[in-house]
Simulated scan of single mutants.
Amino acid sequence: MRFLIVFASLFAVSAALNCYICNSLNQPECVHNYEKFNKICPVKSFGGMKSVKPLGCRVSRQYVKEETSIVRECAYTGEDIERKSNKGSLGVSRVYSQCSENLCNSAESSTHFLTAAVFIAIFKLFA
């Protein structure tokens, strides 16, 4: 019986998803020193749904006028996607990626944002 409990506990720990969770607006280290924000994604309840397990990790780079921010978080909806961009009103644009592996919302995934940032800057110049 003890063996079963230990085995189940080990499986539960190994099945947990880790992501970097931070926001550069209030945690400037989120840009380059994000490793210290390595956390286990919790199971959440929202939108009338209970016990929603995380599906992956997400990293978003948001541009508002001249300010850029990075948000690294757990993802509870959506699917794996790379460098999806959308533009809002009043000069707000966002580029995000979502992935399903542990700690996949790192700087390596953020390097793709450079290309998107250049594209958005050029778009803003000619739009």
Rank of each mutant, 00 (worst) to 15 (best):
M1D: 06
R2A: 15
F3C: 13
F3G: 15
F7W: 05
A8N: 02
S9N: 06
L10A: 03
F11M: 14
V13S: 06
V13Y: 14
S14A: 15
A16C: 14
N18P: 02
C22E: 06
C22K: 01
N23I: 03
N23V: 05
S24M: 12
Q27I: 01
E29N: 12
E29C: 01
C30G: 00
C30E: 01
H32N: 11
Y34F: 11
E35N: 09
F37Q: 00
N38G: 03
N38S: 06
C41T: 04
V43R: 06
K44M: 15
K44S: 08
F46T: 07
G48H: 07
G48V: 05
K50E: 10
S51C: 00
L55T: 12
G56N: 02
V59Y: 03
S60H: 04
S60R: 10
R61G: 04
Q62R: 10
Q62A: 08
Q62F: 01
Y63G: 02
E66V: 06
T68D: 13
V71M: 10
V71T: 14
C74T: 04
D80L: 08
I81P: 00
E82A: 07
K87L: 04
K87A: 04
L90C: 03
V92W: 14
V92T: 13
S93N: 11
S93Y: 02
V95E: 10
Q98N: 13
C99V: 10
C99H: 09
S100H: 14
S100Q: 14
E101Y: 13
E101L: 15
N102L: 03
N102T: 07
N102H: 14
S106Y: 01
S106C: 12
S109W: 00
S109A: 04
S110H: 01
S110A: 14
T111C: 13
T111L: 15
L114P: 00
T115V: 12
T115R: 12
T115N: 13
A117D: 11
I120K: 04
A121Q: 06
A121S: 11
K124N: 11
